[in-house]
Simulated scan of single mutants.
Amino acid sequence: MNTNQIEALIGMLAVLALFAIMVLPSLIGIAHDRRVDRQLREAQDHHREKEDQKSSSRSTVPSTATWYAEGRRSKKLVSS
Score class of each variant (00 low, 15 high):
29 G>Q: 09
48 R>C: 06
17 A>D: 01
12 M>V: 01
32 H>V: 13
22 M>L: 15
27 L>K: 10
39 Q>M: 02
30 I>N: 00
48 R>I: 15
31 A>D: 10
27 L>T: 07
28 I>V: 15
46 H>N: 08
40 L>M: 14
24 L>W: 04
35 R>V: 07
17 A>S: 05
24 L>D: 06
36 V>M: 03
48 R>G: 02
41 R>D: 15
17 A>P: 01
43 A>D: 14
13 L>C: 00
48 R>W: 12
41 R>P: 00
14 A>R: 01
20 A>R: 08
8 A>N: 10
22 M>H: 09
35 R>K: 07
27 L>D: 09
18 L>H: 01
25 P>V: 04
37 D>H: 08
23 V>Y: 04
43 A>Y: 02
41 R>N: 11
45 D>M: 10
34 R>A: 14
13 L>M: 05
30 I>K: 02
25 P>K: 08
29 G>K: 11
11 G>Y: 08
29 G>Y: 08
30 I>S: 04
32 H>D: 09
22 M>C: 15
19 F>R: 11
15 V>T: 10
20 A>D: 01
23 V>P: 01
46 H>A: 14
42 E>Q: 12
34 R>Y: 14
37 D>W: 05
39 Q>S: 07
43 A>I: 05
22 M>E: 10
17 A>H: 03
42 E>C: 03
14 A>Q: 04
12 M>C: 07
8 A>C: 10
47 H>M: 04
11 G>I: 06
35 R>I: 06
46 H>Y: 11
36 V>L: 05
25 P>D: 09
9 L>D: 06
13 L>R: 00
27 L>Y: 06
16 L>Q: 15
